[in-house]
Design a binder for these strands. Structure first.
Lengths: 357, 357
DNA sequence: CTGTTAGCGCTTTCAC
DNA sequence: GTGAAAGCGCTAACAG
């Protein structure tokens, strides 16, 4: 019961206990610097008086460490929190942070409702709170990264940044592998359903004139290259394989595009869909079922990501499993300095489900 | 190009520009306190010299505000990030925080792998960073809440806390309503599949002897009460309706329990399953399909939550839609002081899908 | 409109 | 093992 409702400080506590502030501080931070008995006495009194321990704000100013790591997401937080892949990444990050006494701050390069390109942090202020940064899926060359304190560790995930360590999978190779598998049984008409491939936002069929993002920096372009390499190898000219683009990896955006594809006249409708995400493939699967199109007999489907939802339903998705949890773990360990900060490429596995046996 | 790689400070900047620190500070924080020209000059020079703006740690110590709001989750972060309902809540929270220049810090009352009850914050240290707290789904009477700075705003979601505002839905009423709907077509054998209902962790069929959590504090118990009220009203003795309990709302935990139920001899197998979550109901739906049990002809199913995944597949889930995004918004607005901090009860909607028409 | 100054609460040398 | 004192970088009075 303090007479004022001002929060109790370490100094207050020291005065009441007739010890110096250094001793109280040591009681909390450096047990070896004082007698066991005194330490326990101080901790007990602190609890009794309702002192919650050293204030994180003051401590972080003094020590220069906040024990906070920020994950900067290219997408809106709303999207990222509801997307299985981003969620897995965050799970991996938090697992490592938790284990090392750090906590997670979520930042977004993109406000809900603002244009697609993320070119500035929404709230640069609180960013300087963090001890380090994990940047997930940004467009290259963004100002965003420059707004972050340059001295602190930063790890990129799923995109390329110069002069900073990144964590990747080999998207080109993985897509080559799954397309190669799919093409062992030659399709009548293949099609590609891509994720955010064009420079200008665009959802629907892509024409030859549209500019694609460059393969060096974006995973979707690398995936397309993998698909097309496999197609060429099987003697199918990539230009003969139509590409549809989907700008946001959510059911509501996927469904109309998929519907457009499935509702093509029978002689134009693809019998193989190479999809750049499981979300897209699952949407295709659901819509195909609703139309009585049999999978895989009438339509074969491949996904990408290996999310749970695609594996515990029937038919199971044929897809590429990328371990996003592990990506998060690796990125977090690099940021915390627990492993050398260098480019890392994680492996993927081909998952042979029922949608493209 | 500073000669040292020590981060540049506001004071450094002021010295180089031959103005006082106050002026630089004002340039960033109080545009009206200096001439437009001077302000722009300062900002331009700051950018040129690589000064990223006032340090958040120092600023937060000085002002007492970090512009960070913490969400404290009862479950592990891994679970919460992958669960549709928690994700929606977080979406609602971030939407409001973003719009008001705040950021989100994620805390968990529970470490991965530690026992079920959350009784202490995993990292109390960084908690005191936050300006306010949203606590989601904790067990009552927990020490956890007492470890948070008492002076700062705190809002509870989906559970009851004394002397603090909370955001709720009326679980009892909602479950009464959906069960009542389900029972208009009298079942041969109803069963309830519950979520974390027992005091002791337990997954599987619940016997009469096991202790349930109290209805005052936990939503699962309130949901059970709602189901049972409807059953009684239809002349079915609640004790005749078996209850299975599931301790974690994920497919891997649900599946074996559901399999056990569906694999009962035909004359014992329920033809109505009242499930406490959509995750449970969706698992039941998938497993039923795999066994050739027709839904709703052979088995009717109801869920709870109204997650997307249950609505864009066929058959669509019959469920109760609770707007978790809105819960998050309301909680965030209360924490920020944008609306009066008081108990709020949000409405739910009965969603009549195909699994229990 | 601009500059001076006193801390915010804490950690950490450094003497004792 | 313990205490006195110097700031960490910034903001908000206040005086000019």
């Amino acid at each position: 019961m303090s007479t004022s409702d001002r929060p109790i400080t370490l100094k207050d506590l020291a005065q009441r206990l007739k010890v110096s502030t250094a001793t109280v501080s040591n009681a909390f931070n450096r047990p070896d610097q004082l007698s066991r008995a005194l330490r326990e006495h101080i901790l007990a009194e602190a609890r009794r008086l309702g002192y919650p321990g050293p204030d994180a704000r003051a401590r972080s100013l003094r020590t220069g460490q906040s024990r906070i790591v920020a994950v900067v997401l290219a997408e809106t937080l709303t999207y990222s929190l509801n997307d299985a892949v981003s969620s897995e990444l965050l799970s991996g990050v938090t697992e490592v942070l938790d284990a090392h006494g750090h906590t997670l701050l979520l930042l977004s390069g993109r406000q809900a409702g603002s244009p697609r390109q993320a070119d500035a942090l929404c709230h640069p202020g609180s960013a300087s709170m963090a001890d380090g940064f994990i940047v997930y899926g940004l467009m290259p060359g963004d100002r965003l990264i420059n707004e972050l304190p340059a001295q602190r560790p930063l790890v990129g995930v799923d995109f390329h940044i110069d002069a900073r360590p990144t964590v990747h999978v080999d998207n080109e190779q993985a897509c080559y592998a799954i397309a190669r598998h799919a093409l062992t049984h030659a399709p009548q008409r293949a099609a590609i359903v891509s994720l955010r491939l064009t420079v200008e936002p665009h959802t629907g069929r892509v024409s030859q004139e549209q500019d694609y993002l460059s393969a060096d920096h974006t995973i979707t372009r690398a995936r397309l290259d993998g698909f097309q390499r496999a197609l060429s190898e099987q003697g199918i000219a990539p230009d003969d394989v139509p590409v549809w683009n989907i700008d946001e990896n959510v059911h509501a955006v996927c469904a109309p595009v998929i519907a457009e594809i499935l509702d093509l006249p029978a002689e134009q409708r693809p019998d193989l869909l190479l999809c750049m995400s499981d979300r897209i493939a699952l949407t295709a699967l659901t819509l195909a079922e609703q139309r009585g199109i049999r999978v895989p007999q009438d339509l074969r489907l491949t996904g990408f990501d290996g999310i749970e939802e695609g594996q515990y339903r029937a038919p199971r998705l044929t897809t590429v499993r990328q371990n996003s949890i592990e990506k998060g773990r690796v990125a977090a360990r690099m940021v915390l300095g627990l492993e050398p900060a260098q480019h890392q490429r994680l492996s993927t596995q081909l998952v042979l489900g029922d949608t493209c046996p």
